[in-house]
Design a protein around this nucleic acid. Sequence first.
DNA 1: AATCGAGACAACCGCCTTGGA
DNA 2: GTCCAAGGCGGTTGTCTCGAT
Length: 333
Amino acid sequence: MELGKKEEGIIRKGPWKAEEDEVLINHVNKYGPRDWSSIRSKGLLQRTGKSCRLRWVNKLRPNLKNGCKFSLEEERVVIELQAELGNKWARIATYLPGRTDNDVKNFWSSRQKRLARILHSSSSSSTPNSTINKSHSHNNNNNNNNKHKRPIPIAAHNEVPPLPMDQGRIFSASSAGELSSKVPSYTSSFNENSSEIKMVSLPDLVNPKLLNFEQDLGQPLFNCSTEKNPCIDTQPLNLNPFPPMSQSQLELAFPSEEHQDFLARFGEPYFDVFGSLEASKLGNGTEIPFCIPPFLEPVGKPDNLSPTPDSLFDDFPVDMFDQIESLPSPPPP
DNA sequence: AATCGAGACAACCGCCTTGGA
DNA sequence: GTCCAAGGCGGTTGTCTCGAT
């Protein structure tokens, strides 16, 4: 696909065509994933070197899990590493085989948006502070709208539950050693518990019904493979000794600094739900104890000060907390 | 059937880092 | 030591799809 002299100066933008992909792949096969700018200088494509590199890294590179949603385990990895490393998407992505920094970034961004939307809707439906108590008593007294909702005790949260899967698998990526030195608890706590547990692609991690189905049937409900880009791991997670967390739990359990900033705008005590996240605990060599996220435990505040879960979660589906009960108890101290 | 909102994804932009001249 | 180009990375935006209403 040689370009005429007329077109040499033109830089094409927008979606990539199959022909362009083909040219790019041929170039990489020939010269390796480098010299991106030479693709344009040679007149092979009207794309910038940056654009070519991005296309290769995000879409054309082999073994990418294109079209697969993040598995529960991948989500946990992202959440924990984000707490540990911050928005170092490229680094986080190195611990997730088949995922790109863009994937991780997009996943996190979606999650942030979702959380913000949930908080916004809950804050608009029940005004913080003065109205909380109203809502509290209201919800505790036969609120028909919430009769199916379980009360969610709220407390500060400052621990990140560890990953229940076989870390050796996920962190067998190139920089696994680096992580294990940084986050030793990943490998120290659960290897003995976990036999062969593989990272899986789950159909819809938010949907407890599907999770239950999967547990019941012992086989994946959903094969996220596409004809073009089959997923790498599609096995069910039956060997997981710990129950999965629902998406709602994940969202509420691991507030990042940005989350906390966001929450802080709403003032006390309404968003004291999460407490502070002491991410440093992950990196100082101490082991992370597995425990019920503190937001699931009574906070110990007087009733007139503590917001009720129902006031916060009025807008949530009635069955969204079904997974919470299945969380394991914390180990004895 | 049409509309709307949310989520997922792809791609661009700007800044920073790095390596070579 | 400085400059410059290329590459890498994070933030942001635009588009598409799908489900709910």
